[in-house]
């Protein structure tokens, strides 16, 4: 995790999110399709029995149990001690994994800013609803992380973290996912923001995030130039991450093949996610983050 230098002025959240947008985000909350185990007591139903107002079950009293939870009505009828169990309400952990590899800095408008805004918006929604928020930036591994944020107090720290993060280095998605999974930051909603143009593939990496532990949302962010190339002629394309070169002569046929491949790639990722219970969304960095968050993410029920 990159530390903010003391000399630099604090980055402001409003650099990423409009106040008006934040007002509208106040009304939203993160939804999870699964009942996941939280860490602290919170506002979400969990599978655990604990302290809440919602009755769950009875069980026989054993020595040492809190006598406050003994159901004296049943004792009156049956003369046996039963303990009332309640559904425990826990907090929800929201993990946001944002791609910080060099490829994110390519494109106009920049994918980097788009992803940071989107991460900020999701983080904002989560923090204001007292969810536990973990924010990770990854490239050739996890290159920065803010874990276990809870409450509005962390908003500025999150903004600071996002704004100071640099997109650099090659992407090794699998390494990053392995590190996240092994960090045991707790189960919760996992939102991965990336362009998913990984040469080594995304299958093995995503498999680590799919399972009972996480409710996975995959948001693929592509720039307009990637969605519809606007350049022509004889070109030598250089990969910004690994300096790999591809010599092409852009023709109508090649452009057609490119678009066909892009569509196939995106569909493949979507299928992969759908088959495994994850939710896939494609975003264009030229679109507004506001509209994506307020409309699309609500439609796919990531937010409500």
């Amino acid at each position: 995790m990159e530390k903010t230098k003391a000399t630099t002025p604090r980055k402001r959240l409003t650099d990423l999110l409009d106040p008006e947008f934040m007002n509208r985000l106040d009304a939203l909350d993160v939804l999870s399709r699964k009942i996941l185990q939280g860490k602290l007591q919170g506002e979400r139903r969990s599978k655990r029995r604990g302290q809440s107002v919602e009755f769950a079950d009875h069980r026989p009293y054993v020595a040492g149990d809190d006598l406050r939870f003994v159901d004296w009505n049943i004792y009156g009828r049956l003369e046996q001690l039963f303990l009332k169990l309640f559904i425990e309400e826990q907090d929800l952990t929201v993990h946001v994994m944002a791609d910080a590899s060099a490829s994110m800095s390519v494109g106009e408008p920049s994918k980097e800013l788009f992803i940071k805004k989107l991460a900020a918006a999701l983080g904002y929604v989560s923090l204001v609803n007292n969810n536990r928020v973990s924010l990770s930036m990854f490239a050739d591994g996890v290159v920065g992380q803010l874990a276990n944020m809870r409450g509005r107090n962390y908003l500025h720290q999150m903004a600071d973290f996002l704004l100071t993060a640099q997109c650099d280095g090659i992407s090794q998605f699998e390494t990053a996912c392995r590190q996240i999974a092994s960090a045991r930051i707790g189960s919760g909603v996992m939102i991965v923001l990336s362009d998913f143009l990984f040469k080594e593939g995304y299958d093995a990496a995503l498999r680590r995030l799919i399972g009972r532990q996480y409710d996975l949302y995959v948001i693929q962010v592509l720039s307009p130039q990637e969605l519809s190339p606007d350049f022509g002629g004889d070109l030598k394309l250089i990969d910004i991450e690994d300096a790999d070169a591809a010599e092409i002569t852009v023709s109508a046929a090649l452009a057609k093949y490119y678009k066909r491949n892009l569509t196939a790639y995106c569909n493949e990722l979507k299928d992969f996610c759908t088959r495994r219970g994850a939710v896939y969304a494609l975003a264009n960095s030229a679109d507004s983050v506001e509209s994506l968050v307020l409309n699309y993410l609500r439609r796919i029920r990531l937010l409500r």
């Binding site: 143009l197 030598k236 990969d239 090649l254 892009l262």
Partner: peptide, 21 residues
């Protein structure tokens, strides 16, 4: 040909397109 250099986020899809072509 003498080609113009252009930096892209990934050559992955282009290489596939060229291969197809």
């Amino acid at each position: 040909l003498k080609r113009r250099e252009l930096i892209v986020s990934s050559t992955l899809l282009w290489k596939r397109a060229v291969q197809d072509l």
